[in-house]
Design a binder for these strands. Structure first.
Lengths: 147, 147
DNA sequence: AATGAAAGGAATCCCCC
DNA sequence: GGGGGATTCCTTTCATT
């Protein structure tokens, strides 16, 4: 990871579909060594993949909610069971194991408030060991620059 | 947005750098109409862009924290000043205006805990109208499938 | 709207520096 | 590690159905 590699990942983070030819020009290389560096960054896991960024509302994920979850018990079996189950729930984007007032902070995206009510009452509350759920419903999201 | 469009965005969300030729094959079209559909999805804003997904630790963002922020005052000027300033802070990925115990939930990514201490004490606490900050430090993140 | 052909461009590989 | 050039594949456009 030298300066050129850092430039490459910065450009690809902002535009993941840029052509190798233009990427090379932007970082001051010719296409051959540029492509070699990109492949190496992919192989070593610095670049994990590429994704299209979608309009949430257009694909049925217009409501974003963060849900703080506390568990009743914290034995290994309880934790494993919860973690396995929660990432399989439709609408769960990420599940963060956090310090603080909650055990987990869930990033959830669903169509609308009725869909979240269903998620909350019929999916999440029924998971093993879930003691309490606190929901933070997103009204607006501001993004920082290129991300 | 018909079924084919939904397939296209699903494939591109999982692999944003797939070639148009292979994308076409996967959704059962020939390349020409497939490309036209992708362009239309981009122009109408359903596809907002493409990004490389990076290993956070490899690019100096090894620590993810969610910070619940309460403001002292909620007048329009206070809110606007806070929102303008917070997204400019280095490390702030997204700023969610939420319902519940906090006014905002910040998604922050920094190098490590000392960097977060600096962010918390020297950047965030000094913003206009910030009354209190509650930090949820992520120890582990589980992702749901393709996202 | 989809197809298919054709031109132009890009990705990729090999070899040299 | 970087560069140049050849090959192959892809992208893109346009005429056609």
């Amino acid at each position: 990871m030298d300066e050129v590699d850092r430039s490459i990942v910065a450009v690809l983070e902002a535009d993941g579909r840029i052509s190798n030819a233009e990427l090379a020009a932007r970082v001051g290389l010719s296409p051959s060594p540029c492509l070699r560096r990109v492949r190496r960054l992919e192989e070593t896991g610095v670049i994990r993949g590429y994704r299209a960024v979608l309009d949430p509302a257009a694909v049925g994920r217009g409501l974003r909610v963060f849900a703080g979850v506390r568990l009743v018990r914290h034995g290994r079996a309880d934790v494993v069971a919860f973690e396995r189950a929660v990432v399989r729930l439709p609408g769960v984007v990420q599940c963060h194991h956090v310090t603080g007032d909650y055990d987990y902070l869930l990033h959830v995206e669903v169509a609308d408030l009725p869909a979240y009510e269903d998620f909350h009452a019929n999916r999440l509350a029924g998971l093993p060991s879930v003691a309490a759920v606190t929901s933070y419903v997103t009204m607006k999201t501001l993004s920082a620059g290129s991300r």
